[in-house]
Design a protein around this nucleic acid. Structure first.
Lengths: 338, 338
DNA sequence: CTTGGCACTCCTCGCAGGTGAGTGCCAGAT
DNA sequence: ATCTGGCACTCACCTGCGAGGAGTGCCAAG
């Protein structure tokens, strides 16, 4: 459909536009790239590209800028993923290795991504649903008040208060703690409900109420916390986008504050491999002039959560994708070690 | 020094400027406020106020705008704290009452403050140093690997991995757990180091190494986590500030990303009572055209952390102060209940 | 001390004209 | 069939100019 050279012209347009942030014309193109043809020829190609919807001109008698469709073609067929330099890789590893706990890993990852890509970084906390239970702890705070602490294999900790219907003795507590742990430690969260189903029946009648309450709280925690948390950073980079930004920055900031929106955004990313959503491909209105580059990361072969960046559609896709992929890999390594 | 009417003129200028975001002139002032004098008189007063440095004009032949010094006088002597309406109070309470855990309380508080004040909200997590220990838990994950979990009276949970120099039996573990808890539960964090000092000596020689390691990790956690965490929100409100904002928004966003800066900002707030830092009173350069309204909050009589908002110097001080104070109170109540 | 009058400053806005980058199209060359 | 150079045309952008107007400072009189 499109000749080889026309694709080359599109690539050149994208690269120049990303660099200069200004509509690019035929003459400038031939000067900055060795296309081997004259501006007039390029003009014809550009007209064809415009007919196909890959580029557009803001006004008559201005240069062309890529459309969402143009960027899409660019990332799909014209650009690879630019690997990071060795010093960069080393810097990433050093920076992440210094993390002390899960919160710190996530915080550092956000800062790293934001710095590397000069864009807004979003990192999802490792999800509970795909995690396994490392330990469940029950603490007695008052005669009829317990604290339930849940620890995952990714190092995440959740706690809940439990108000018991009746006082609960220390021995019963130890008993419940032991049985609960022997049943669910090492198991996936999704399997927990089944595994604890018959637990109350094995207790003395006067304790059954409390045991049920504890289990209910546990299951509730699993469900509620499936609604995942995330951390964002690098919002100052939004001011980097060009002249028109008063209008564009507001809806983006608003979208970023809606965690739900972001989670859906990351969620849309396919299971494996990197996902790039360009402009209007993002369902959310405020993000119609931004692109999202996201990828899953995890301690093993399976992704436990996702991370990515949000930036203007006019971004350096190869570089951004390279940075996102590299960071995801190293974070996975860190999680596997801890 | 300044006559009563001149103060009244200053108050009128601040109020009008906050409302319109435009320099206010003598004629407009007399029309919008019942000052009982003519524009010419007001002009004389304004000249005097300008000599004293309370107001300034952007260019000759423009109206006046308050200076930082002018705002300072305004909040100190001319304005009170505007209490919230009953429906607002009720809404705050309902919204915060729905919180499920500490993270949720903080997150909701941030959203609430941002919404009420239409500015950037900052909420510090309850600090460890001023908290007391509710419980310490030790879990055995592997023969020579423990997890240390620390729970505070404000519901905060911290965990750390401990690699032991030697295997540590279950009985020793239970022993350590019991002794540790009996010594430090209910005590302030600051006192913990002293309280555990001689603990290793009471253990069998082969366990002393591990006990020391655990204690070292515990103390380390106390120190490290003193470096406090905070949550911010409402950054989209930054785009609300006037026309000139491309220049002002960037440094503010950058400052907000530097948690250290923010913590220092909140830290500067005096122990009790509300603190208002106006414009250049904020040490940080990027915040020279913003004001910070901060106040401590806590579950009891003492503040365990601080919260506040960051907005343009041209803000509605009485309303903002009212909202901040009210939110701080209700958060304190919530913390006291849990 | 207040007031009305008056001259002055200077920002803002709208308009006109020139400039230049970029385009589309066409006829001729390869 | 494709590429190339030429050429007329279109607009966005910048500049300078002039009218309009809000606001000020000062002064003389009440």
């Amino acid at each position: 459909m499109l000749s080889e050279r026309r694709l080359e012209v599109l690539r050149a347009i994208v690269q120049d536009y990303v660099g200069t942030e200004e509509p690019v014309g035929s003459k400038a193109l031939t000067e900055r790239h060795q296309l081997g043809v004259s501006p007039a020829t390029v003009r014809n190609d550009m007209a064809a590209l415009e007919d196909e919807g890959f580029i557009a001109q803001p006004h008559t008698s201005a240069g062309r800028i890529p459309t969402d469709k143009g960027y899409r073609l660019f990332v799909d067929r014209l650009a690879g993923v630019k690997p990071l330099s060795t010093p960069e890789r080393r810097a990433i590893q050093n920076f992440l290795d210094a993390s002390v706990d899960l919160d710190d890993v996530v915080a550092r990852t956000v800062r790293l991504l934001a710095q590397l890509t000069r864009q807004v970084a979003v990192v999802q906390y490792p999800s509970l649903t795909r995690s396994t239970v490392r330990h469940v702890e029950l603490l007695s705070l008052a005669p009829a008040r317990l604290m339930l602490v849940l620890i995952t294999d990714t190092g995440r900790v959740e706690q809940r208060m439990v108000d018991c219907p009746a006082p609960f003795g220390e021995t019963s507590l130890a008993d419940l703690r032991a049985r609960l742990n022997s049943r669910i430690v090492g198991r996936r969260f999704a399997d927990v409900p089944q595994l604890v189903q018959e637990l109350p029946e094995s207790f003395e009648p006067e304790d059954r109420g409390t045991v049920s309450t504890v289990l209910a709280t546990l299951l509730e925690t699993l469900v509620e916390e499936t609604e995942e948390r995330l951390m964002i950073g690098g919002t100052a980079n939004l001011t980097r986008v060009g002249h028109d930004f008063p209008l564009t920055i507001r809806p983006v900031l608003e979208a970023l504050e809606e965690q739900v929106v972001l989670l859906k955004l990351l969620g849309e990313a396919t299971e494996s491999g990197m996902t790039v959503r360009i402009g209007h491909e993002n369902a959310h209105e405020g993000l119609s002039s931004t692109s999202v580059v996201a990828v899953g990361y995890g301690s093993g072969d399976e992704a436990v959560a996702k991370l990515g960046v949000v930036g203007p559609t006019r971004m350096d896709y190869p570089g951004t994708m390279g940075a996102v992929r590299a960071v995801a890999r190293y974070v996975g390594q860190i999680l596997a070690e801890s």
